[in-house]
Write a protein that binds this DNA or RNA. Structure first.
Lengths: 329, 329
DNA sequence: ATGAAAGCGCTAACAC
DNA sequence: GTGTTAGCGCTTTCAT
C-alpha cells in the first residue's frame, strides 16, 4: 500500500531529480526531449497520476463541485443530477453528491465536508428552514441556489424556475373546463418557490373569477407523503374536483393517492402535475402537468460555475429564471 | 481568498503554537482545559474545518467513494445511487458520481480521477468492452463490480443479481398463457449479465417445450433506443406476441415503442419488463416485470466497503448474488 | 502542558 | 537543461 507512484519515486527509479520529473509531466518546456520521453513512458508504465491532495495543498483549485439535493429518486432531481454530471464530465469537474432529505442539519454537514475538500462550488436546493433563522456557512466556495431561495444563505447566484404563467394557466384551464373546487397543494412559505407558486395559483383563481377556499389550499414542507395525504383528504372529504400540484414530490404523491383509490386522472378528477416524468404521458391517456426546463437549468448552472472562473465581474449573473410550460393532455 | 482558516492562523491569532491547536482540535488529552476552550471557541467562530488535502497527504484515508454508472436517469440506477448516497452519508463517506454512458474510455477516465483524489473505493457498473480486451487500471483502491462482471477488470468484489429463476418463470408464465412467439431483448454477450439472462430465457423456452427462434432474440449493447427499436421491429414485422426484457433501459425502451404504437401491454401484447420503476404498476392496469433488489444491492455494496476496512480477510466476500423476483400483474 | 522539527507530493523561485 | 530549497496544512516524534 505504501507504493504510491509519485514524482519522487519515478525520479529515484530513473536516477534523476524529482523536479525534472515534475517539469516533464507538467509540460514545462525546459526538459530535454529524451529525458521527457523516458519519464513519460515510465510514468505511464507505473500508472502515475498527480496527487490531487498535493495540488490542493499548494492552492490549486480542486475542481470539485458539490451538488446538494433533497433526494435523487424524484425524476426531476435525477434528470438534473444526470445533466449536471454530464456537464461536469465535459468540464473536468468532479461531482460530489450529497442528499439532504430536505433537512437543514444534513445540509450544513454536507457543506462542511465540501469545505474540507476545498470544493470550488456548491450547487444546492436549499432545505426549508422552518423559521430557525440559522446562518448557513459556506465560506470559501461559490454557492448556487437552485429552484428555491432561502434568506440567510449567502449564495452568489440563483437558478430559478419561472412557473407563474404555467400555474396560473393551469387554474384557468380547469376553470374553463367547468371546475369550481380547484385545490392547490404546495410547498409552504418557508421557501421562495412555495410562496411564488401559491401566488400564481391565487392569481389564476382571481382571473377565473373564483373565490379562494382555505380548505382547498395546503402548504407544507414538500414531500411525497405530504402530497399523497393532502390529495387523499381533498378527494375523500373536501369534494375537490381539480387539484393543482406545486412541487415535484407533491405531484407524485398526489398521483399515487388517486391511483390507489382507483381514480383515473382526467376521468374521475382533474389533476395537474408538477414536473414531467417520462411516464406522465402514459398515465390514463396522459396527465396534464407543468413541464420544467431541466436540461436548461443544468446548463445555466454549469455556465454559472464556469462564468465565475472566467469573467465573474463582467456579467453580473445573479438570478436567472427559466420558464416552465403548461402541458395539457 | 488567501484567508483560509488553518491551525496556524488560529494559533497566531491566539498567540500560541499551532501544535497546541492541532492537539486541541483532534481531542488529544494533553491540552489545558482553558486553552482547549479558547481554541475550540475561536475555531467555531472562524468556521474552521480540517483540510482534507493535508490529511490525505499524510496518508489518512480520504473517505471518498466513487460510483460509476452508465447514467442516472434510469429509475433503477437512480434508486441505487440514492440508496448508496444515504448509506454513504451514514458512514461519513463522500460519494463522487461519474457517468460513463457505458463507454469504456469515460470509465477509465473516471477511475483515473478517482485515483487522483485517492478514493478508497470505486463501485462500478462495468461498461461493455466490445471485445477490446484493454486492461482496466484501478490500482490503489478497492473495486466493487455491480450487476455485471467484465473480465480483465481486477475487482476485489462483485455484487450481482440472480435473475435466472425470475426470467425463466417469465417465459413459462407467457407460455402458459398461450403465447408461442415469445421474444427476448437482452444486453449482448460482452457482459456476464447479458449471457446469464439469455441463458435463463433459453432455459424457460426449454421447460415450456418451445423451440428457439433466432428472429425473436436480440442482443446488443443495452440502451433505451436499442430496446425501443428492437421491440418495434418485433411487433411490426415478427409477429411476436410476448416480449421479455433483459435490462432496465431495454425495458423502458420497449415499453415506449409499444405505447407509441398505441398498444396496451397486457391487452395487445404481453410485455415482461425488467426493473420495477414505481410507475409500472400504473401502466394499463399494471405491467408484469422482474423486480430487482435495489436497496439490498446498495446495502450489500456498502457493507462490502466497510467490511473491507475492518475484517477484509475474515469473510472472503467475493461475489454476492441477490435474487430478483417476477412480479405478475 | 506546550513547542520545534520533519515529512507527506507537488511546484515556484532560485541556483548552476 | 537540471538540481536544490522552501512551503502549502497537518500530525508524529522528540524535546522541554
Amino acid at each position: 500500500m505504501s507504493n504510491r507512484v509519485t514524482i519522487k519515486s519515478i525520479a529515484k527509479d530513473l536516477g534523476i531529480s524529482h523536479m525534472t520529473v515534475s517539469r516533464a509531466l507538467s509540460g514545462h518546456p525546459n526538459v530535454h526531449n529524451d529525458t521527457r520521453d523516458r519519464i513519460e513512458r515510465r510514468a505511464r508504465e507505473l500508472g502515475y497520476v498527480k496527487s490531487a491532495a498535493a495540488r490542493a495543498m499548494r492552492g490549486e483549485a480542486t475542481q470539485i463541485v458539490g451538488l446538494l439535493l433533497p433526494n435523487i429518486l424524484n425524476e426531476f432531481y435525477a434528470r438534473f443530477a444526470n445533466a449536471m454530471a454530464l456537464a461536469c464530465e465535459r468540464n473536468s469537474f468532479h461531482l460530489m453528491i450529497h442528499l439532504t432529505s430536505d433537512e437543514i442539519a444534513l445540509e450544513q454537514r454536507a457543506l462542511d465536508r465540501l469545505r474540507e475538500v476545498q470544493a470550488i462550488a456548491a450547487v444546492m436546493v436549499p432545505a426549508p428552514d422552518g423559521g430557525s433563522k440559522q446562518e448557513t456557512k459556506a465560506v470559501g466556495m461559490k454557492v448556487v441556489q437552485l429552484i428555491r431561495q432561502r434568506p440567510g444563505l449567502d449564495a452568489q447566484a440563483a437558478v430559478l424556475i419561472d412557473d407563474h404563467t404555467a400555474i396560473c394557466d393551469a387554474v384557468l384551464h380547469l376553470a374553463q373546463a367547468g371546475h369550481r373546487k380547484i385545490a392547490f397543494i404546495g410547498g409552504g412559505c418557508d421557501l421562495s418557490s412555495g410562496r411564488d407558486r401559491l401566488a400564481a395559483y391565487r392569481a389564476g383563481l382571481l382571473k377565473a373569477g373564483l373565490a379562494e377556499d382555505p380548505e382547498l389550499i395546503h402548504g407544507d414542507a414538500p414531500s411525497f407523503a405530504m402530497g399523497r395525504d393532502h390529495a387523499g383528504e381533498l378527494v375523500d372529504t373536501k369534494q375537490a374536483t381539480g387539484i393543482i400540484c406545486g412541487g415535484v414530490e407533491i405531484s407524485n404523491g398526489a398521483l399515487s393517492a388517486l391511483m390507489d383509490r382507483g381514480m383515473q386522472p382526467g376521468r374521475d378528477i382533474a389533476l395537474v402535475g408538477y414536473g414531467d416524468p417520462s411516464f406522465y404521458k402514459w398515465i390514463s391517456g396522459g396527465l396534464a402537468t407543468v413541464r420544467l426546463p431541466v436540461e436548461e437549468l443544468a446548463e445555466e448552472t454549469v455556465a454559472e460555475l464556469i462564468t465565475d472562473r472566467e469573467t465573474r465581474a463582467k456579467r453580473g449573473s445573479k438570478r436567472r429564471k427559466l420558464e416552465a410550460t403548461l402541458i395539457i393532455r
